[in-house]
Design a binder for these strands. Structure first.
Lengths: 218, 218
DNA sequence: TAAATTTGTTAGATTAATCTAACTTTATAC
DNA sequence: GTATAAAGTTAGATTAATCTAACAAATTTA
């Protein structure tokens, strides 16, 4: 059984992993807002529990066991977010902090019930995949809106950042999952996009926003 | 902000308080399965936070502040139990452990939403009162089944003990809140009762069971 | 490639929550 | 009303998770 603190390290390791599955101590330290020496010592502890591959001065890597346990925590987080939105009526910008706490609840029955009541959802309210009971998670190959060209028409399928500020911004512009967007023009200088969708016929989106919206061609 | 551990001490203090509001260190120690010296030092800490009145070798007493904070944790616990039973379909014997964890979630919105979805319930699934937002809680003056006499007809309104074993026993005999019971006879020797209710025309209940069932006359 | 910067580790201290062993106070029993 | 038992406290150790200061390795820069 991992402590709540250990669970948070595992989750951070999984979400910071690059394509090689590597994470720097420094990045982990910054992400968790915990000083590097503390991170180093925790990594040795997790290595002793066979959850992390640790070698001095080398990047960190989760073991298969570590990856699975991390994915199962993310599963609990995303199921909870989905439950809060679908069954309790919260907005997608309100659920992160609650799910951050509920993900540590130890009760398979509780999460199995949520899953059942939700009809075994594959995606959370932000379009992120919910890992299955074995910790398997597949991200579809979505493009970022920022990678699209003038004239493209695309549908928003997921958001990368789930901070209150970003989601509130999207709410204020009536941007949500499923919205179809047509790209009217792209500013060469800063990649700002002018787009139209729904009642919004001329909306300007900064590159920062376009980088955080995942879309698929329609 | 109290730690999870402090919250558990507060809750235990409230539930162990006698009519004078007093609790012995020894009882608290046994209830929490934590050694007495640890309890003593925690009491000094809670006293420093003005949550407990502490004097050496005297019984412990919650302050008004301590009582309120304890009641608000119990509020979260009981709202959660009610939610789990009413909205998620759990049995009354399944919810204690889950609520024991969820009661520590820090999110007023989350519990406000539960309360709203439940229609502001006054009682939890075991018949215990749910403290209001100010920590006010009133127990109606129920009798124990064990205090009733031969010939009485009563309705079960609450259960004192909420352990799995006891609730499973009640389930196995189809005893639940609202059931009307007629007392056929009381054994003088050990206060065992022979009762009838629903399809159960001759059921024998030990004094241990009768002590744990709260009833009102009908 | 040598110097400077960034990244990572070691050593030792701190805090919260726990424990055991030894001691003191209060309550109970004869 | 003392002796014994039970309840409560003090002192000091332990573990998990954190920190700062100092040092070492790796990377970047000039």
């Amino acid at each position: 059984m991992n402590s709540l603190v250990e669970e948070n390290y595992l989750k951070a390791l999984l979400s910071l992993s690059n394509d090689k599955g590597e994470v720097n101590v420094n990045d982990l330290s910054k992400h968790l807002d915990i000083k590097m020496p503390t991170v180093t010592s925790m990594m040795k502890k997790l290595a002793a529990k066979k959850l992390v591959h640790y070698e001095s001065y080398k990047p960190l890597r989760l073991t298969e066991k570590g990856k699975k346990e991390a994915a199962l925590i993310i599963r609990k987080h995303r199921l909870t977010e989905m439950y809060l939105v679908e069954k309790m009526g919260f907005g997608w910008e309100q659920v992160h902090n609650i799910a951050e706490q509920i993900e540590h609840i130890q009760s398979p029955e509780f999460f199995a019930k949520m899953d059942e009541l939700l009809g075994y959802p594959k995606l959370d309210p932000h379009g992120s995949p919910i890992p299955d009971k074995n910790g398997k998670m597949v991200w579809k190959e979505y493009s970022k809106l920022s990678e699209c060209k003038q004239g493209d028409t695309v549908k928003i399928v997921a958001v990368i950042n789930t901070s209150d500020e970003f989601l509130n911004f999207l709410n204020s512009r009536e941007l949500s999952l499923g919205v179809k967007i047509k790209i009217k023009s792209v500013e060469l200088f800063d990649n700002t996009m002018v787009v139209s969708y729904g009642k919004h016929l001329l909306e300007t989106l900064s590159n920062m926003v376009c980088e955080r919206l995942l879309v698929e061609k329609v």
